[in-house]
């Protein structure tokens, strides 16, 4: 499959103007677990041109039930494993990786090039940190965050809403992995799909929900 063939196939599905808009976009995915790994794959398949993948962690056996990794990747940095999986699905996407822990101090620099930032951490303090960093250091950037996708509650409780002028929040808002209800692949993927679709909608100029 050549790059031209890939682009033609995308153009046929979404139309050339939108394909070009997606291809010219840079999206950062912060946290490469159940949300981030599926967000990155979705965006790559949709034709987003550049992905910035950020996580400090390695693939663990306990991740495989919901995250887009394979048993052969156990022990690898998630940034490396996801780059491999994303490129296997969509070979012409440009992937940049940062294998480190994001902090309030390094966030602005790491996210400098991103048109849209996806918050996909699992730790609620990390989620709040990124939202705060966005408000403090890059208020002009779009942020798509998530909260509440644990357990096997109704899929219809997962929704997307606009929390602020340049921020969307996906999830049910309440189901907490800390309550021992676990995380199930389809519900996490549902939330990841909300985030990925919201990114595409922002890029396409659809800035309401």
């Amino acid at each position: 499959m050549t790059k031209e063939e890939w682009e033609q196939a995308l153009s046929k599905r979404v139309g050339e103007p939108l394909r070009r808009t997606f291809a010219e976009a840079t999206v950062a995915v912060c946290g490469l677990g159940g949300l981030g790994s599926h967000i990155a794959l979705s965006l790559a398949r949709a034709g987003v041109g550049r992905l910035v993948l950020i996580d400090f962690d390695r693939v663990d056996l306990s991740n495989l039930h919901r995250q887009a990794y394979f048993p052969s990747q156990i022990g690898e940095n998630k940034t490396d494993a996801l780059r491999e999986n994303v490129l296997a699905a969509a070979p012409y996407v440009c992937v940049r990786t940062h294998c480190l822990r994001m902090t309030a101090q390094n966030a602005a620099e790491l996210l400098e090039d991103a048109d849209v930032v996806c918050e996909a951490f699992d730790d609620p303090q990390a989620k709040a940190m990124l939202v705060d960093a966005a408000a403090s250091y890059f208020p002009g950037k779009w942020l798509v965050a998530a909260s509440g996708m644990a357990g096997i509650g109704s899929p219809n409780r997962i929704c997307t809403r606009k929390l602020a002028k340049r921020m969307f929040l996906c999830g049910d808002g309440t189901s907490d992995a800390a309550d021992g209800i676990g995380l199930a692949a389809p519900r996490v993927m549902l939330c990841a799909a909300h985030q990925a679709l919201t990114v595409l909608r922002i890029l396409a100029g659809e800035t309401d929900v």
Partner: peptide, 10 residues
Amino acid sequence: VEIVSFVGGG
């Protein structure tokens, strides 16, 4: 005002 309290999971 809206106050969002993030919950764990991702």
